[in-house]
């Protein structure tokens, strides 16, 4: 009985906050646009029979007819994958240095990584506008140093989006990797060196495989929100940056086309869920082997 209650709590939570909203979104994606409140038909007021017969996959078909959507998906995937990779390249050395730092420093370093969360995310993204703009801090410094002759155009380009995403999600990469590296027994590295590894070999053969779980967790934590990211591309990106989060927003608020927007969201969810399921299957198989 106790066990049942214990399991019931998280499942109720998932049901109320994930499954039910998803069913609602999925239902809207099967509906038609209408000039009413809510802006779609059918609703349950129409009665059960007409309600179910009016649902169809028209919106999903529509997504395939317009280039915009699949281009936005592909571009989002590309941006999310690239920025996850960059975040990993930047975050791993940070986590490694933190784990190798003297014991008394680690709490402080951890604090510094978490510190940005104490300020509003929006304000921090706005701050990047100030840094990256033509007259911004970055250009001023580079001009003053004589590295460049004319200010660089960074703001409102895809580069700015990458900078924004990497900056924002870096802590999500650093923390799980740090947790994995922190647990790593130093004797393992010594054992590897003792058995003939150079420092570099020991890193690739022992440190990396043993921090694999941290790397995977960090990558998911960055990749998933980056894929649907809306704020960063709208503030830092330009018209050339096509991301599915932005398309979704425009469908909802500019076009007031809730059904199509819901269809976009459902596809996005599928794109995210499939790799996660594949990964978990793979993990399970490894455990069993």
């Amino acid at each position: 009985m106790q066990r049942f209650v214990l399991i019931a709590v998280p499942y109720t939570w998932l049901l109320a906050l994930f499954l039910i909203p998803f069913v609602i979104v999925f239902k809207i994606s099967l509906s038609d646009i209408a000039l009413s409140i809510p802006p779609y038909t059918p609703t349950l007021e129409d009665g059960f029979g007409p309600f179910f017969s009016a649902l169809d996959f028209e919106n999903f078909v529509f997504l395939t007819t317009d280039d915009l959507y699949w281009k936005a998906y592909v571009s989002s995937l590309r941006i999310a994958v690239t920025s996850t990779a960059i975040t990993l390249l930047v975050g791993y050395p940070i986590a490694y240095a933190m784990a190798r730092a003297p014991e008394e420093w680690r709490a402080t370093l951890m604090m510094l990584v978490i510190l940005p969360f104490w300020t509003s995310f929006l304000i921090r993204v706005y701050a990047w506008m100030g840094i990256l703009s033509q007259e911004g801090v970055l250009n001023q410094v580079l001009l003053w140093l004589g590295v460049i002759d004319a200010p660089l155009t960074i703001l409102n380009t895809t580069t700015a989006v990458y900078i924004g995403i990497v900056y924002t999600y870096l802590p999500f990469m650093v923390l799980p990797i740090y947790a994995a590296l922190d647990r790593l027994d130093g004797a393992l590295i010594e054992a590897a060196e003792d058995l003939g590894c150079s420092r570099v070999q020991a890193f690739w053969l022992v440190t990396i495989p043993l921090s694999k779980n941290g790397i995977i967790a960090g990558s998911f934590l960055v990749f998933i929100p980056a894929l649907g990211e809306f704020v960063i591309p709208s503030l830092l990106g330009g018209s050339g940056t096509l991301m599915i989060g932005k398309v979704l927003w425009e469908e909802f608020f500019n076009n007031r086309d809730w059904p199509v927007a819901s269809a976009v969201a459902v596809i996005l969810l599928l794109i995210l869920i499939i790799p996660i399921i594949l990964f978990q299957r793979n993990q399970q198989r490894q455990e069993e082997a």
Partner: peptide, 20 residues
């Protein structure tokens, strides 16, 4: 001579077996 170039091997107290 660095550890990886020594004809010396060590058995660690914690064994330090590679868990992976």
């Amino acid at each position: 001579v660095p550890p990886n170039k020594r004809a010396v091997n060590m058995m660690f107290q914690s064994y330090a077996l590679f868990p992976h």
